[in-house]
Design a protein around this nucleic acid. Structure first.
Length: 843
RNA sequence: GCCCGGGUGGCGGAACUGGCAGACGCGCCGGUCUCAAAAACCGGUGGCCGAAAGGCCGUGCGGGUUCGAUUCCCGCCCCGGGCACCA
């Protein structure tokens, strides 16, 4: 009588043994090819959820399979432990953030162990540990020395609920805080920045080298960086009497070829020049009204997009450099101070926004670019000076075409590559009135946070010396544990923390009390894993050189911009510092889909959460692992189904019984499968087909179909058992199938496979130390194939032929099989697709 | 508006670079075992017509290329996501 499958007993047993044996600790081994599998490290929020199960199971299967396939695999884990939720939870439960954080880490760590994840626990990093965050401070100082740190005052995003500023990347589409979803406000504040814009070009260009990344992630980053090429153009400002002054205002435009169509000039309401221009004039009242209305707008209203555009004339003019025309300067609420220069040349014929504005305020709209097939082109092409002051169009034309009413450029194509663009830019450059320019949407990364539970910024404010970095020898700046978060305290409430002396002059000074954005901590943890316990350096470059870059990174799409962009930036700086020799940290990226239930993402607020711990208790971690991989491809969303999990548990039971039954009548080394008869041959072939399929599927992350293939092998083995009398069975073959199946299953259901291997089958060593089953193409090849026969594109019959049959033989057999459909017809053509089908065309 | 995904049975999903659509699982239906149930095992399961053999239809919609299209091309529709008054 075979023992029943009991995951509870098996799983605990092996988990204890793996932990005792430090079974998954690795070191560098130059003799083996390395592979670094990394899942985005978790925030210690408490209980694990299905998203964790999915993310970490995918990585675990890859890590385990590659280990069996002969790679030296690094598969670490750690915790992104600083951050606001710890503060909020501490306030709620009247504890300290550290207490809450470490308790949750313990909780999650034991859940991960219950899932059977093969982590190297000796390399664990926790970002709120002093021996981790001190290196974060060291990075800050290095960045500072390289001129990548800046403290400046500008309008920033402020979350009133989190009581801190946020980076642009942390403000969601509707102007909401990424963490608490409150509407953010704009405030003018002095803050710390990392100059990520210095790497904008590289961050964009290198996306092309990331062939192992999903298109959509690259598209999102490219979108976010938002590079546009064009020109800067200098407009001369006129005085109140309309006479040109020495002063110029520069604009950025992507369409210098439309410069002749500029009939007015716009300033953002926040533009510093606005007040100066209208001060004491009759235009002041209406202009300031526009300015005030714009200031009142919240980020949400601004994000609403196209609304009615408002503006007011300032009473001043600027000179258009290409034609010397004086055009009026207006203030308009659709001009953004954050982008470009905060000033815009308005070309109403070519820009829909300018078009609408011109219509609303009665400004002229002369055409300067016409589509190539426009009938008006004939009469306008030769005209050098302007003759048409207003178009009859319904909307602006921003496509390519022929330049008209554009002085010496008239008749020139704007061109796909920008012929007119280049010509006008050169013209401006020659006269010192403009230049080629590139603009980015990307802003510098605001990294300071007015919160306690974070990495202190190692800087000192000295009234004599200004901003002074904390010397490296004084690191770390310790985060004092005595801050009482339940009373709303921050570092700024603790004089014993901030009262200090200036490292430069020795005089009294004030320590910086802001902490760093948690995303600074997660931008380099993958490198620290390579040498997690190093106390002398951030990491040993030989060790990082061995393991890095990460071969396969796995995580949620929510980090498509945030974490992934920041980490790429850090890596490029590390490269420039000589700390690493590569510029991209993650060679391949997989963004796993979400786990849904009843159509919604699982969440506490929706009340549709299925707790992994409950499922483990009921069906075991192995069934849960296999289930979550089987239900959908890893990158697609997955709809939770309890029935599906039950089905997976059933299959594992089937495998268990199959292997157990075979083990009862066979022994290790019971001989080589002869596979003499037809049934045995078929099973032998199926075994090799599945070995090939599973190996291939794993390499392409088609984990769902790899499990389907193992189910097929299970079904084939059962069919063999049911159809062949016990005495006639090839026992060695059955043994071989059972062993192969167990090996294939090892990465997916590590506990069950281990028990089957070393317990049930009584084979040698740990299943996880065995070699991955080798695919034998010859053994997988069939000697006979069934082919479909099509007549005029429809399947009308099928033939079974020898796999190596000559084409003439195949055609002859095929024609015979569909003879009924060929009567009285003329055969025009036959097509043979080897091993698949024969297509006959008749008339 | 721009940029990415995606539309296949009752459901989740298969189908490598154009080659038998629906693998595998769930669900459902029928059977074996049982006093009965559960478990397990066996069989069936895209739609329509048919007793069956078989036939016709079928991968969001409309065209096209091809002996052959879920796959390639053109034109749409719908769903999800990112960015968005970015000059």
């Amino acid at each position: 009588m075979v023992r029943a499958y009991d995951p509870r007993v098996i799983e605990t047993k092996w988990q204890e043994r793996w932990e005792r044996d430090r079974a998954y600790s690795v070191d560098e081994d130059p003799a083996k090819p390395k592979y670094y599998v990394l899942e985005m490290f978790p925030y210690p929020s408490g209980d694990i959820h299905m998203g964790h199960v999915r993310n970490y199971t995918i990585g675990d299967v890859v890590a385990r399979q590659l280990t069996m396939a002969g790679h030296q695999v690094l598969h670490p884990i750690g915790w992104d432990a600083f951050g606001l939720p710890a503060e909020n939870a501490a306030i709620k439960s009247n504890t300290h953030p550290a207490e809450w954080t470490y308790a949750n880490i313990d909780k999650q760590a034991s859940s991960f162990k219950r899932m059977g994840f093969s982590y190297d626990w000796d390399r664990t990093v926790v970002t709120c540990d002093e021996d981790y965050y001190r290196w974060g401070q060291w990075i800050f100082l290095e960045f500072w020395e390289r001129g990548l740190v800046e403290r400046k005052s500008s309008p920033v995003n402020w979350c009133p609920s989190c009581k801190t500023v946020l980076a642009n990347e942390q403000v969601l589409g509707g102007g909401e805080c990424w963490r608490c979803k409150s509407t953010v406000e704009k405030r003018e504040l002095e803050q710390w920045y990392f100059k990520i814009t210095e790497y904008a070009d590289e961050l964009l260009d290198d996306l092309d080298t990331l062939t192992g990344w999903p298109e959509r992630v690259k598209a999102m980053q490219a979108n976010w960086i938002g590079r546009s090429e064009g020109a800067e153009v200098d407009f001369t400002l006129c005085d109140a009497e309309g006479e040109p002054t020495e002063k110029t205002i520069t604009v950025f435009t992507t369409r210098p070829d439309t410069l002749f169509g500029c009939t007015f000039f716009l300033l953002a309401p926040e533009h510093p020049l606005v007040h100066e221009l209208v001060h004491g004039t009759e235009y002041a009242a209406s202009v300031l009204e526009v300015v005030a209305a714009a200031a009142k707008e919240t980020a949400v209203e601004r994000a609403m997009g196209e609304r009615e555009k408002r503006g007011a004339f300032t009473g001043r003019y600027v000179v258009n450099p290409v034609n010397g025309e004086k055009v009026p300067v207006w203030v308009a609420d659709y001009v953004l101070m954050e982008y470009g220069t905060g000033a815009v040349m308005a070309v109403p014929c070519g820009d829909q926004r300018d078009f609408e504005f011109a219509r609303a305020y009665g400004l002229p709209i002369p055409p300067v670019v016409l589509p190539e097939d426009d009938p008006a082109l004939e009469s306008l092409r030769e005209v050098r000076e302007r003759v048409v002051d207003d178009v009859t169009w319904e909307c602006a034309y921003d496509g390519p075409g022929i330049m008209v009413q554009s002085g010496t450029f008239t008749g020139m194509p704007t061109g796909k590559g920008g012929t007119g663009v280049a010509a006008v830019t050169r013209w401006l450059e020659d006269r010192g009135k403009g230049r080629f320019a590139i603009n980015y949407r990307l802003r510098d990364w605001l990294i300071s946070r007015q919160r306690y539970w974070g990495n202190p910024i190692p800087a000192v404010h000295c009234s004599a010396c200004g901003l002074v970095p904390v010397p490296e020898r004084d690191l770390p700046v310790r985060l004092p544990p005595e801050v009482d978060i339940t009373k709303g305290e921050t570092l700024a409430d603790h004089p014993e923390f901030y009262e200090t002396t200036c490292p430069s002059c020795g005089g009294p000074a004030r320590r910086e009390t802001d902490t760093m954005d948690t995303f600074t901590c997660s931008s380099w943890y993958y490198l620290r894993y390579c040498d997690a316990r190093n106390e002398q350096a951030i990491w040993d470059s030989a060790k990082a050189g061995y393991w890095m870059p990460v071969d396969q990174y796995i995580g949620g799409i929510e980090h498509a911009i945030l974490h992934l962009l920041y980490s790429r930036f850090f890596t490029k700086v590390f490269r420039d510092m000589g700390l690493v020799s590569f510029g991209e940290p993650f060679t391949r990226l997989l963004t796993q889909g979400m786990v849904r239930k009843d159509g919604d993402v699982m969440s506490k607020s929706k009340g549709n959460v299925v707790a992994p711990e409950d499922m483990i208790a009921e069906f075991g971690a192995d069934a849960l692992r296999a289930y979550i991989l089987f239900m959908a491809p890893p990158d697609k969303d997955l709809e939770w189904s309890r029935e599906g999990l039950e089905g997976m548990y059933r299959w594992l039971g089937r495998v268990w019984r199959l292997v157990s039954e075979v083990a009862e009548v066979t022994a290790v080394g019971c001989g080589v499968a002869t596979a003499a008869d037809l049934e045995s041959k078929a099973l032998h072939r199926e075994m090799h087909r599945v070995i090939g399929k599973v190996s291939d599927d794993i390499s392409r992350f088609q984990l769902n179909t790899s499990i389907a293939a193992m189910m097929e092998l299970t079904n084939a083995a059962y069919e063999y058992r049911n159809n062949v009398a016990p005495g006639a069975r090839d026992r060695a073959l059955e043994r071989s199938v059972a062993e192969s199946l167990t090996l294939l299953l090892a990465p997916y259901v590590p506990h069950m496979a281990e028990e089957l291997w070393s317990g049930v089958l009584a084979a040698e060593g740990s299943v996880h130390r065995q070699g991955w089953p080798a695919f034998d193409a010859a053994a997988a090849a069939a000697d006979e194939v069934e082919m479909a026969v099509q007549v005029n594109g429809k399947v009308r019959g099928r033939v079974t032929v020898a796999a190596d049959a000559a084409e003439e033989q195949v055609i002859a057999a095929a024609l015979e099989a569909v003879a009924g459909h060929l009567e009285g017809k003329e055969i025009l053509k036959t097509v043979v697709v080897a091993g698949k089908l024969v297509s006959v065309v008749v008339r």
